[in-house]
């Protein structure tokens, strides 16, 4: 495991090709053959293995990011601006 920049060592033609397909791999939509190729490549390319793992982890972490709540005051002002206060559904929060 290293945090040293190593872009120069990582810019092989194969690595570039796999990087171009990372999103599909992370989403599980990558073509089966290419998926197998990538996984074989990762067995002997440490940098690609790290990039793939951290890329997928990044997507997962953002999926888990807590959602900000709309403040009640903001919601109330919205209904007022829209002139809909009397039609607002009962608060079931």
């Amino acid at each position: 495991m290293t945090s040293e920049p190593a872009a120069d060592n990582h810019a092989t033609h194969d690595c570039r090709r796999y990087i171009d397909n990372l999103s599909d791999y992370a989403d599980g939509t990558l073509d089966d053959d290419l998926c197998r190729e990538l996984e074989t490549h990762m067995e002997h390319c440490e940098n690609c293995r790290v990039v793939v793992n951290t890329f997928t982890k990044t997507v997962t972490l953002y999926h888990q990011l807590p959602a900000p709540e709309i403040p009640n005051t903001v919601r109330e002002r919205l209904y007022k601006v829209l002139d809909l206060r009397e039609f607002r559904p009962e608060d079931d929060e």
Binding site: M1, S3, E4, A7, A11, R16, N47, V50, N53, T54
Partner: peptide, 20 residues
């Protein structure tokens, strides 16, 4: 290259969940 090539190769997946 400069825009999209990975330059940082620290594998943070192994960090504990409480850190992440």
């Amino acid at each position: 290259d400069g825009d999209t090539l990975p330059r940082q190769f620290f594998d943070f997946c192994c960090l504990p969940e409480e850190t992440l």
